[in-house]
């Protein structure tokens, strides 16, 4: 069975890409082994304390917490991109493995298809 890698590179709320990327990942989890990789502003997707009560956007960050229930347990991010944004993995709503450059290259090599949002 093919392994699918979903890559999120954009911040939440500024565009619907993250939300639709998560939808695609949830759909994928029903049919295949799926992993999630957060790059660049994509790391903000999982930031704790998002409060959308006055923004007019949807707070779907809680849905990331349900990923293990969907069988998606391989969650990764760029360690560099996390650090350059002043964050650590403790700031994220679910446990995420921070990888260095070589680790991310290997991750992309290890998956059969990469879907980017």
């Amino acid at each position: 069975m093919k392994r699918l890698l979903f890559v999120q590179s954009r911040a939440p709320h500024g565009s619907v890409n993250g939300q639709e990327g998560l939808d695609a990942l949830l759909a994928g989890s029903a049919f295949a082994t799926c992993s999630l990789l957060l790059l660049e502003d994509g790391v903000f997707q999982l930031l704790k304390a998002q409060d959308t009560s006055d923004s007019g956007t949807k707070n779907y960050s809680v849905s990331y917490g349900a990923l293990p229930d969907y069988g998606v347990e391989d969650l990764y991010c760029s360690a560099d991109h996390l650090v350059s944004r002043g964050l650590t993995t403790d700031d994220l709503v679910v446990p995420v493995t921070a990888l260095d450059r070589a680790g991310i290259s290997q991750l992309m090599a290890d998956h059969d298809v990469i879907l980017s949002f």
């Binding site: 069975m1 699918l4 939808d23 695609a24 759909a27 049919f31 295949a32």
Partner: peptide, 11 residues
């Protein structure tokens, strides 16, 4: 159609 069609295409 649904996102299943995207996943089906990927697979």
């Amino acid at each position: 159609s649904g996102l299943g069609q995207l996943i089906d295409a990927a697979l």
